[in-house]
Design a protein around this nucleic acid. Structure first.
Lengths: 235, 235
DNA sequence: TATAATAGGATTGTCGACAAAAATCTTTCT
DNA sequence: AGAAAGATTTTTGTCGACAATCCTATTATA
């Protein structure tokens, strides 16, 4: 049921086509942080005019994947320990709110859905081939509470945060061996989310996130200079 | 020090000029919720082309003040009890996080700044003339913790929320007499924010917000139909 | 050599026009 | 009268070109 994600025949608008081509390049780390993007070159290279490209770029700037420096150009966001901490602290707050809001809406169908998402994640990890897919499914697992909450503003905030998490996960995956998320890491998450103790779930979230944060932070313990100090290349 | 907000000589880009003209019209309620905006008419009326207008509109859609219905047009966001509850629940979560993050950064200068903001609010309320100004200063008071936190993501989320709060405050102000925020309402807020007990502050926030929420909700207890049911007018 | 003026390049902002898609209105036929 | 087909309008998306702004590198001058 969640496996038939056949890619749509074709995106209608050029702006969305550009988005679906650029987004994976960035969140997967193929365009490395700090990489500068020239509007004209990109437009020529993609065979489109600047108008839809500019709009797509603005979309990416809005979610924070790209940084626009006025009159200098746009570049892929620089990563660093501080950004990571900000993302995680905000993420804890948002996901805690999501669980508060969805707690009483959990019915059998919702719980089955949650378990299915976890199963899909486990399977992908087990077979261990596609790292990007594992990341997507971890994010999809965590999307559960936001979607169930029915809180549109909250879901919107989460959707803005997701691509940034994806980027950090990818960077971590590239740096260290391609261990995706740990298989066991989400068992407790699932148990608490299915259980009856909301405040236990809320405090588990803090631990769960801290663990994820510390794991990802190792990225910066080693090659801090390589990623954080790097300035926007001149050309 | 905070009183010399002399409006800049002139906004450079047309897009920002449009923003600074449209934003007040919306958040003040002069463009009533559901009001439809026609791109061409607006462009002609403002004497600009569609390009910068479209970008300005996108900005307003991003913060949630405008709603864009594909192939039907954009209109001022419809207000309702559910939206209000979403805004407030998210606001509590964000402001709690802000206080957690800024708690240890409060020094004498910061506390003086907080008090100054509260004083400015009180003065404006006392003289009772300019309702919009009182709203702006209440928002400015609450911005304190976000700015002090140094948490850029959090500040960004707050900046997106602010205009929506402004709109609801304005609607409430128009509906009932022009009592702005109550003068006493923020005394406790200030005391807790300056105090030593973080968890006391956090729980006060819940109460403070609930009070604000309930006050504003009265807006919908009376003329629910008038505001919520109203559909986008045909012309 | 150091500083200031200047020329060049890059990027953003803006414009007017056109094409495509969807919705709405009008007409026509049964 | 009701429904289907077509025409009109509105909105959106797209394009190419130009102007304005800012940054940068070069050159000229003291």
């Amino acid at each position: 049921m969640s496996n038939l994600d056949l890619s749509p025949v074709v995106d209608q608008t050029i702006r969305k086509q550009i988005l679906t081509r650029l987004m994976p390049l960035i969140v997967s780390g193929k365009l490395e942080p700090g990489q500068r993007l020239r509007e004209q070159d990109l437009a020529r290279h993609l065979g489109v005019s600047r108008a839809p490209l500019r709009e797509a770029i603005r979309d990416l700037v809005d979610v924070g994947l790209l940084v626009s420096v006025p009159y200098k150009g746009v570049h892929v966001r620089l990563t660093g320990r501080k950004d990571l901490e900000e993302i995680y602290s905000l993420r804890v707050a948002l996901e805690q709110l999501a669980f508060r809001e969805c707690w009483n809406k959990r019915d059998l169908a919702a719980l089955a859905d949650l378990q299915a998402r976890n199963q899909a994640l486990s399977d992908t990890i087990q077979q261990g081939s596609d790292g990007t897919r594992a990341i997507e499914q971890e994010l999809h697992l965590h999307s559960w509470c936001f979607e169930l909450s029915g809180h549109s503003l909250l879901l919107q905030a989460w959707d803005r945060m997701k691509p940034n998490l994806h980027l950090y996960f990818s960077l971590h995956q590239h740096a260290h061996g391609r261990q995706g998320p740990l298989r066991q890491a989400h068992d407790a998450y699932l148990a608490f989310a299915s259980g009856d103790d909301l405040s236990a779930m809320l405090s588990h979230l803090v631990d769960h996130m801290r663990q994820g944060l510390e794991t990802t932070q190792k990225l910066f313990d080693e090659d801090e200079a390589a990623l954080e100090i790097k300035k926007v290349p001149g050309s």
